[in-house]
Simulated scan of single mutants.
Amino acid sequence: MDIITHQKISRRLCGTPVAVETGMSRVELSTTEEMAADDTGLVHGGFVFGLADYAAMIAVNHPNVVLGGADVKFLKPVRVGETITALATVTEEKGKKRLVRVTAAAGDVRVFEGDLACFVLDRHVLT
Rank of each mutant, 00 (worst) to 15 (best):
T85Y: 05
C118Q: 10
K97F: 06
A117V: 11
T91D: 10
G95E: 01
A70R: 06
F119C: 06
T89K: 15
T89Q: 15
G68V: 02
L75S: 08
G114R: 12
V80A: 09
T85W: 03
V90Y: 02
G69W: 05
D71P: 01
K76N: 12
V90F: 05
K96V: 05
F112G: 12
P77I: 03
T91M: 08
G68L: 05
V72Q: 04
V90G: 03
K94C: 06
L116N: 02
R101G: 07
V102H: 08
K94F: 01
D108W: 04
G114S: 12
T85M: 11
P77G: 14
E92R: 15
V90W: 03
L99F: 07
T85R: 15
E92T: 09
K96W: 02
A104Q: 09
E82K: 03
L99C: 05
L116V: 00
V111A: 13
R110K: 15
A70G: 13
F119E: 07
D108H: 12
T103H: 01
A117Q: 12
L99H: 09
G114A: 12
G68Y: 03
V109L: 14
V80P: 14
E82R: 01
G114V: 07
L87G: 06
A105G: 06
D71R: 15
P77R: 13
A86Q: 07
F74H: 01
A105F: 03
L87I: 09
A117F: 04
K76C: 05
E93H: 07
R79E: 06
F119L: 11
K97M: 12
L116I: 04
F112E: 10
I84Q: 04
A70W: 03
T91L: 07
R98N: 15
T83S: 10
G114T: 08
R110W: 02
L116Q: 05
V102L: 12
T85F: 02
A86S: 11
V78F: 00
E92Q: 15
G114Y: 07
T83M: 07
